[in-house]
Write a protein that binds this DNA or RNA. Structure first.
Length: 470
DNA sequence: TGAAATGTTGGGGCG
DNA sequence: ACGCCCCAACATTTC
C-alpha cells in the first residue's frame, strides 16, 4: 500500500481530527508533515513563535505514539512533490483553511497534484460547520450573527472523532529538518521568555484548559466574562488558532455540560462564542473582499489617519489612558488580551485617534499568540464601523467610563501598569522586561498624561463622521 | 458589544 | 395643604 502524506497546518491535534481519523481508517502507512512555507514565515513575531511551540509539542505527541512529524521548509507544492518522490506516497491529505491566501495556495496544490496523478483531498475539522452548509432560507449566507446562531444551533454538529491510539508508519521515513534550525521564534526577542510563562501549548494543555473552565469559571462566566481582571474566560482561542483543540470537541463537551443538572449558566455563552468564531470564518470564506481596502469604498472620503506618533504611543501602551494602556501591555506581556479590552483599545485607535483600523490590525498580527485573520478582520471592522454586521460609527467607547464599569477595583489597570500600581506586580514589570530596549522605557518614569482629551477626541471623530454623511 | 444629551417622573424640602 | 423648585433616577433620543 502506498503511504499517505498528512499535511498538518492549523490542526495540530490527534483528537477530533477528521482528516487523521479517515487516514487511520484506510490502514495505509501515514507520513505526518509540517511545512514552513510563506504562510508560516510571513506571520508576525508572536504568532510565529507560538506556532513553532505548537509544532514542537505536536511532534512530541506523535513521537510518543511511535510515529514522527516530518519538518520541511520551502514552498508547499515543491516540498510535497519532493516528499512524494522520496517516499512513494500516493497522495496528500489536509484539513481545510478558509482565508483567501490559504485557499488560493491549497487550490493550486490540489490541481497540480491531481494533474500529476496524485491523490489530493481536503477535510473539515477547523470549524463547527463548513461555510456552504449553513444557508439562509433563500440559499444565501448569513451576514448577521443572531440569525446565524439560530441556524447553527438548529443543526447537528458532527460528533468529534476519538484520538487514534497509533499511526501506521511507512517502511522508511523521509528526512526531517530540525525545528530549531528554522529560527522562527527569533523575532520575539526578549518577549519570548515573558510570553512563554502565559502560553498554554499543545493538545494536552488545551484539553486541560477546557476541563478547568468547565469545572469552575463556567459557573460565573456570564457575569464575569466582561471584567478583564477576572480569570473567567476559557482562554481557548490560543489553542483553537493552531488547532490544538477541535471546535467539535468543545461543542460536544459544552452539550454535555448543558445536559447536566444543575446546568452551568455560562455553557451556552461559550457555545455562542464558538458560533461567533464560525461566522467570522464563514464570512471570510464567502466574502474575502472584506479583508481588502476596496471593501470600504463608502469610507474612502473619511479622513482616516495612517501611522503616526500617537499610534506609536498606542502600540507602546503609553497613551495615558489607563484602560487602553493596560490592554496593550497585557497583549505584549501575555500574547493575548481580554476581549473587553480589545474593544476598548480598538475603539480608541479608530475613533479617538481616527486611525485606519489596518494600523491596529497589523500590530495585533505582530503581538497576538491567538492571531487569526478572520476573527481580527471581523473584530476590527465591527469596531471601525465598516464591514457587515458592524457597530455604527458613532458607537464610541469611553475608556474612562469602561474602566469604571468593568474594572471598578482597578485590579486590571494596576496589574499591567506598574507606574500606577501601589505595589507593582510581575506582569506589570514584565512589560518593561519584554519591550525592546529601543523604546527606552523606565518603570520609574511617571505615567504619561493623556495624549488626547477624551471629549475632544470623541467630538472630532463625530464631526468627521457627520461631514462624511453630507 | 456606547455615550451623552434630552425628556420624564416622583419624592422631599420649603415657603 | 399646596405649589414650587430641585434633583436624582430612570427612560428616550440622538450622535
Amino acid at each position: 500500500m502506498q503511504p499517505l502524506i498528512l499535511w498538518f497546518r492549523r490542526d495540530l491535534r490527534i483528537d477530533d481530527n477528521p482528516m487523521l481519523a479517515a487516514a487511520v481508517a484506510t490502514g495505509r502507512p501515514l507520513i505526518p508533515v509540517f511545512i514552513a512555507d510563506d504562510s508560516v514565515t510571513g506571520l508576525g513575531a508572536a504568532p510565529r513563535w507560538r506556532l513553532v511551540q505548537g509544532v514542537a509539542a505536536f511532534g512530541e505527541t506523535l513521537a510518543e505514539m511511535g510515529t514522527r512529524l516530518i519538518l520541511r521548509r520551502g514552498a508547499a507544492l515543491a516540498v510535497l512533490r519532493a516528499l512524494i518522490a522520496e517516499s512513494g506516497a500516493g497522495g496528500v491529505w489536509w484539513g481545510r483553511l478558509y482565508d483567501p491566501q490559504a485557499r488560493e495556495r491549497d487550490a493550486a496544490i490540489k490541481r497540480a497534484l491531481r494533474v500529476a496523478g496524485h491523490e489530493a483531498r481536503s477535510f473539515p475539522g477547523h470549524l463547527l460547520a463548513e461555510p456552504w452548509e449553513v444557508q439562509t432560507g433563500q440559499g444565501g449566507h448569513y451576514r448577521v450573527y443572531t440569525p446565524f446562531w439560530k441556524a447553527l444551533s438548529a443543526r447537528e454538529v458532527p460528533a468529534p472523532s476519538a484520538a487514534p491510539a497509533s499511526l501506521p508508519a511507512p517502511a522508511s521515513w523521509p528526512e526531517s529538518e530540525r525545528l530549531e534550525s528554522w529560527h522562527l521564534g527569533a523575532a520575539m526577542g526578549r518577549g519570548a521568555v515573558v510570553v512563554a510563562r502565559h502560553a498554554r501549548i499543545g493538545e494536552a494543555a488545551a484539553q486541560a484548559r477546557l476541563e478547568r473552565f468547565l469545572a469552575g469559571p463556567v459557573w460565573e462566566y456570564r457575569e464575569a466574562r466582561d471584567f478583564p481582571a477576572s480569570d473567567a474566560t476559557s482562554g481557548l482561542s490560543e489553542n483553537l488558532t493552531y488547532g490544538e483543540i477541535g471546535p467539535r470537541r468543545i461543542w460536544a463537551r459544552v452539550q454535555m455540560a448543558l445536559a447536566a443538572a444543575p446546568r452551568p449558566p455560562g455553557a451556552e455563552h461559550l457555545a455562542k462564542g464558538m458560533a461567533c468564531r464560525a461566522i467570522d470564518h464563514h464570512l471570510i470564506y464567502k466574502t474575502p473582499e472584506i479583508l481588502t481596502p476596496q471593501r470600504r469604498e463608502e469610507w474612502d472620503d473619511f479622513p482616516w489617519r495612517g501611522d503616526s506618533d500617537e499610534a506609536e504611543r498606542w502600540r507602546r501602551g503609553l497613551t495615558g489612558e489607563p484602560l487602553v494602556d493596560a490592554g496593550m501591555r497585557q497583549m505584549y506581556v501575555t500574547g493575548t488580551m481580554h476581549n473587553r479590552a480589545r474593544m476598548v483599545v480598538a475603539s480608541y485607535l479608530s475613533k479617538h485617534l481616527m486611525t485606519d483600523w489596518r494600523v491596529g490590525q497589523k500590530w495585533f498580527a505582530e503581538c497576538l499568540i491567538d492571531w487569526d485573520p478572520a476573527a481580527n478582520a471581523m473584530g476590527w471592522q465591527w469596531v471601525a464601523g465598516s464591514g457587515p454586521d458592524a457597530a455604527p460609527f458613532f458607537r464610541i467607547f469611553n475608556p474612562a467610563t469602561q474602566a469604571a464599569k468593568f474594572d471598578p477595583g482597578m485590579a486590571y489597570r494596576h496589574r499591567f501598569i506598574a507606574e500606577l500600581a501601589p505595589c507593582p506586580c510581575r506582569d506589570g514589570l514584565d512589560f518593561f522586561e519584554a519591550a525592546p530596549r529601543s523604546w527606552r522605557l523606565d518603570p520609574a518614569a511617571p505615567y504619561p498624561a493623556p495624549i488626547v482629551d477624551l471629549a475632544e477626541g470623541r467630538a472630532r471623530a463625530l464631526a468627521a463622521y457627520q461631514a462624511r454623511r453630507r
